[in-house]
Amino acid sequence: MTVRRVIALTLVALSAGCATTVPGQAVPMGGNTAPGQEREIVSQYFTDLNDAAAEGSDTQRDFLRRTQHPDFTDRTCELGDLVLTIEPALSTLRVDPKWKPEKATSRPRGSVYVVGVSVRIRRDNATLAEQIGSQRVVVLDGRAYGFAPCPTR
């Protein structure tokens, strides 16, 4: 069957009413999405993280130290001269109520969110790697806290 014939048959089927529409309106999944104010706090966290990255590894290291979740300040990693740029896909931001850091005995205080991210790892303005994954951010007392990423070996 030629491409033209497939297109023609598809158009005929659609015009004959074979396409299905579902009445109603799309509604976000209740209870799993971040409230507007906390969504903004998480978004600002990534903006500040990337602004720190633009200033270099020392500034970003300081940012990661200051924003490490207060219950887990003993779990930081040394990034050396690496700089991370992290772009969140905020449309994927959702509550993650059961998550706790690896080997932790309890959850972090606050509202835990998970978001899909694209991470670019740089050294001396040269991109070493890019990857897609997820990252947890916790909103506690109106502030966003993270968990300093650790490079894998």
Rank of each mutant, 00 (worst) to 15 (best):
R109I: 10
F72I: 11
V95G: 04
C77N: 07
R107P: 06
R61C: 09
P97A: 13
L82T: 05
L79W: 12
C77Q: 03
E102R: 15
G80V: 01
L64Q: 13
W99C: 07
T105C: 08
P97S: 11
L84G: 09
T105Q: 11
V95E: 13
F72V: 12
V112F: 07
R61P: 06
F72R: 13
E102Q: 13
D96F: 00
V112P: 06
P70M: 03
G80P: 04
T92A: 02
P101W: 00
E87Y: 11
K98N: 10
W99D: 01
L93W: 00
V83F: 05
G110P: 01
L84S: 06
L93V: 00
L82K: 14
V83M: 07
K100V: 04
T105H: 10
L82S: 08
Y113P: 00
S111M: 11
E87Q: 14
R94P: 05
P101F: 00
D96Y: 01
R94M: 11
R75I: 05
D71R: 09
R75M: 07
D62S: 15
V83N: 08
K98P: 05
D74E: 09
P70Q: 04
R66A: 08
T85F: 14
W99T: 05
T85V: 15
T85G: 14
P97M: 13
F72P: 10
R61A: 10
V114G: 12
T73P: 03
T92L: 03
R109W: 09
R61T: 15
L93A: 00
F72A: 12
G110K: 00
D71H: 03
T73G: 05
S111T: 15
P70G: 01
P101I: 01
T67P: 03
P101H: 01
T92R: 02
W99H: 05
P88E: 02
